[in-house]
Simulated assay, not measured.
Amino acid sequence: MTEQTNRPVPNPCVGVCALDENDLCIACQRSGIEIAEWGVYSDEEKREVWRKIHLREQGVLKE
């Protein structure tokens, strides 16, 4: 295992929950479902959400 997979995956929440018209939080860039399901996601699923967040921030991923 790498060091990254040994550490807990941090929650991207910054304490400002407001969904836009595309159901994405304007602060953390997660979808409403990703926010609601975060607590039951595996570390692998959480890392995938982080990957999507980065793509959304770059404007690459539009949902």
Rank of each mutant, 00 (worst) to 15 (best):
I35F: 07
V9K: 01
S42I: 03
S31R: 09
A36P: 02
C28H: 02
S31L: 10
E21N: 11
W50E: 00
P12L: 08
E57M: 15
N6P: 04
D20Y: 07
E45T: 09
W50M: 03
R30Q: 02
V14C: 14
E45R: 10
E37V: 15
Y41I: 04
P8M: 03
E44I: 10
D43R: 03
V9A: 01
E45C: 09
P8Y: 02
N6T: 14
C17W: 09
C17P: 09
P10T: 10
R30K: 09
V16G: 09
Y41K: 09
G39Q: 01
W50V: 00
C25S: 00
S42C: 05
Y41A: 10
C13Y: 02
A36M: 12
V9R: 08
Q4T: 12
N6I: 12
K46L: 04
E63R: 13
T2A: 01
R51Y: 12
A18Y: 08
V40A: 15
L61H: 07
G15Q: 06
M1H: 06
E44A: 12
L24F: 11
I26K: 15
C17R: 05
R56W: 00
E48F: 05
Q4L: 14
I33H: 15
R51W: 11
Y41Q: 10
C28V: 05
Q58N: 12
A27Q: 02
M1S: 06
T2Y: 00
G15H: 05
E45W: 03
I33L: 14
G32R: 11
I26E: 13
L61T: 00
S31N: 07
P12N: 04
V60F: 12
V9N: 05
E34H: 01
G39W: 00
V60K: 15
C28M: 05
V49I: 08
T2K: 01
R56T: 00
H54G: 13
G59E: 07
E34Q: 09
P12H: 02
P10D: 04
K62D: 12
I26D: 12
D43H: 07
L55T: 00
I35N: 00
I53S: 05
K62E: 12
K52W: 02
L19T: 00
N11I: 02
G39H: 01
I33S: 15
R51A: 15
I26H: 14
E57Y: 10
D23F: 11
K52G: 05
Q29G: 10
I53G: 01
K62S: 14
E45H: 11
D43C: 03
A27Y: 04
E57S: 12
C17D: 02
L55A: 10
E37S: 15
L55P: 06
T5E: 09
